[in-house]
Every structure is written in C-alpha cells, then in structure tokens.
C-alpha cells in the first residue's frame, strides 16, 4: 500500500491582486522507503506542494474542491485536508510527517538548546515515558547522524554548531519522532559540496535503516540523480513529467526537462555550450493558457499549445509527460 496519495491537488492563494494558482491539478503517490525528487525552478510550486502535505501553507491558501491528500497510517487512511486545525493536525505534523528545511539556522529556536528542542517534540509526539528517556533517545539520534561528542552538542545552541553540523542535528530532530514521511526542502542547497556529499550519504543510510518515504525538493538535478528513486518535474504549479530517476534524467520526454538538463554544466564535456531555457518563468499573475510552458518552449506548436492543456502521455513503464507533441506521436504510432 502506498504511504501517501496526492490526488488532483489544486491550491490557490487569495491576494490583493486576485487568486494566484500555485499548484494546479497535481497527483502523485509515494511508497514507503521511496525517495521522490521534486524538481523545478523557484516559483514552480514545489515547496507549496510539499507544505500542503502537512497543511503548512498560510491562511490565504484555498484548496481545490477535488483535492485529496490521503495518508495511509497504521490506524487507517486519513485525508490531511479534512483534519481539524490545531490538535487534529498533531497526528500529521511532527507525528507521521517531519520536515527539514534549507536553512537550519532559521528552523532552530536560537535561545533554546538543541537538546531541549529535541526532547520537547519527543514528549509531544512519541509515547516516551519521561524526560530522561527522551534525552537518551535524542543523544542516540545525534550520534546516529554522525555528530561527534553528541552529549555535549545536546546542551549547545544552534549558533554554536557549524552549517553541516546544524543540518545533521536538524535531520536527527526530524527523525527522532520516527516519521513515516520526511519532507526535505532543499536540505543541501546552503551547504558546501563536500558537506552536501556527506549529508546525501547520511540520508540514503537513514532511509535504508528507518524505511520512511522522502519527498526531496531540490533544483539541483545532480543531487536528484544521486538520491531519488523517482522524479517529478514541476513547472508553474503543474507536474510536467514523472518517472524513475533513470528515465527522467537519461531519456527526458518533456521539453522543459530537456531544457533543464541542457542548461546544466557537464563535467565530462567541458567545451559544450550551456543552453539556457529561453526567457524567464512567467509571473503567477500572468499564467499562460494551454500548456503552461508554451511561452518558453522551443518546440511549441503555436496555437494548439496555447489553447489546450496537454494530458499525460505514456512514455515508458511508470514514465509520463504532459506535452502535445507526445500526444501527436502517440496518434501517429
């Protein structure tokens, strides 16, 4: 059984300028122990999608009437969007789902020790007898993520740790409640490459150990290639391509995915020209009609692409992309 099923997720923000569509009819599911990479430029809606899983979006967010986020817990399925605010959300937030962020300094309280923050959430979310037990669990967890001198770090504040160490502590804190699903929002973007490599290895180890599912948000396709089992590519709130990591990176089907890969510097061919995706991502207020990518697409068919929203075409086993060109090919074949 899948861990989480997202069906027809649509999310709009009410603003002074009107309704802004941030996520548009997105569906995917995630198996336990699976790492799904969610890729896209800034403004593509990847963070908003991930935050919807815990309903962490601000109050002006309006979910579409057909949107469902079904979380399959041991006690049975739960629709996250139907949970009551406040206490009702506790089984999800910090319970079944944990989240780690890009900037660990911003996500730890600066004036409370790392240890106190870890103990507090353990007491809240996991059936832990007392503070002493919670302390033991926390220190074990800090050791597990490779923090040396864990009992000393337990009593320190976030500012006393280095960037890489902070991100490890963050991961330890997120995993100590034994979540079923971990949302990692650009967890390595602020780190140096050498530290990033360490954190990626750590996360892969932890999936093997704990068997939770991970939604891994990043704009770095190299990081995705190294971590994810499956990839979902987002553009302007729509899922344009999904598939296994090999399918999407080695045989991309959507022009946007191809564009992203071409824009990337490749180490095995230093003299290759870098080809940017032309133009900029449009403002969410000026959402293109038809295929959202048509304004920047180099193979756009013109009017058909500007008027019709493409369906998902079958590219391979478990590999789909939403592009009219693929639909046409399917008709011809």
């Amino acid at each position: 059984m899948s861990l989480i099923d997202v069906e027809n997720l649509t999310l709009q923000f009410r603003t002074d300028e009107g309704l802004i569509t941030a996520v548009d009819d997105v569906s995917f599911s995630l198996e336990p122990g699976e790492i799904m990479g969610l890729v896209g430029e800034s403004g593509s809606g990847k963070s908003v999608t991930a935050k919807s899983l815990m309903r962490l979006n601000p109050d002006n967010a309006v979910y579409g009437p057909k949107s469902r986020i079904i979380l399959n817990l041991d006690s049975g399925p739960v629709d996250v969007l139907k949970l009551r605010p406040g206490r009702g959300m506790q089984i999800v937030r910090g319970g079944a789902i944990s989240m780690i962020f890009q900037e660990p300094m911003a996500s730890f309280a600066p004036a409370i020790t790392i240890g106190d923050q870890m103990v507090e959430q353990l007491l809240l979310h996991r059936k832990v007898a007392n503070e002493k037990e919670a302390t033991t669990i926390s220190i074990e967890m800090l050791e597990r993520v490779g923090i040396s001198d864990a009992s000393k770090r337990f009593g320190q504040y976030a500012f006393e740790l280095s960037g890489g160490m902070r991100q490890r502590a963050m991961i330890a804190m997120a995993l100590s409640t034994r979540p079923k699903l971990l949302i990692a929002d650009e967890p390595t973007t602020a780190l140096d490459v050498t530290i990033q490599a360490q954190v990626i290895d750590l996360m892969k180890d932890l999936v093997a150990d704990f068997g939770m599912g991970i939604v891994f948000i990043t704009h770095d396709l190299g990081v995705i290639a190294q971590t994810a089992d499956r990839v979902a590519v987002m553009y302007l709130g729509r899922l344009v391509e999904t598939g296994t990591v090999r399918q999407v990176i080695k045989t991309p089907a959507h022009p946007y995915t191809k564009g992203l890969l071409n824009a990337l510097p490749k180490l095995d061919n230093l003299s290759a020209e870098l080809t940017p995706v032309p133009g900029d991502i449009p403002s969410p207020l000026e959402r293109p009609s038809g295929c959202v990518f048509n304004t920047r697409c180099s193979v756009s068919l013109g009017t058909p692409c500007q008027t019709r929203i493409p369906d998902y075409s079958y590219v391979g086993e478990g590999h789909e992309a939403a592009c009219l060109l693929l639909e046409e090919e399917a008709v011809k074949a």
Binding site: V193, T194, Q196, A197, I200, D220, L221, G222, V223, A225, Q226, V245, R246, I249, K250, L261, L264, K266, L267
Partner: peptide, 10 residues
C-alpha cells in the same frame, strides 16, 4: 572537491 560534485548519472 571534484569527486564531491553530484554526478548526473543515476
């Protein structure tokens, strides 16, 4: 540093 660059090859 070179080997820490994540490879694009899954």
């Amino acid at each position: 540093l070179l080997s820490a660059i994540p490879s694009l090859d899954p």
